[in-house]
């Protein structure tokens, strides 16, 4: 995958924030967890556990394993 340059410009660091420097609350809000789900609880149950654990109101999971 090559990178093409259409134009050059700079970015203003007085707003926005590089992903690695986000305040922890924003990091959690815009975060993904590569979770090793144990067999047993369903993806839905684990999602709701993670939501409670992190104290966030929105969370989802990226796919269940087949029945």
């Amino acid at each position: 995958m090559g990178m093409l340059i259409k134009a050059e410009d700079t970015t203003d660091y007085s707003y926005g924030c590089p992903p690695s420097e986000r305040p922890i609350e924003l990091h959690l809000d815009l975060g993904v967890v590569n979770l090793d789900k144990p067999p047993g609880p369903t993806s839905h149950e684990v999602t709701s556990w993670v939501k409670k654990l992190l104290g966030i109101d929105k969370a989802g999971h990226g796919g269940t394993l087949e029945p």
Partner: peptide, 20 residues
């Protein structure tokens, strides 16, 4: 370390970088 930035999920997607 446990939580990755959302950007990781689109790591392999085609990308466009835009002006502020």
């Amino acid at each position: 370390k446990a939580v990755m930035p959302v950007e990781h999920a689109v790591k392999d997607m085609p990308k466009i970088y835009v002006r502020d």
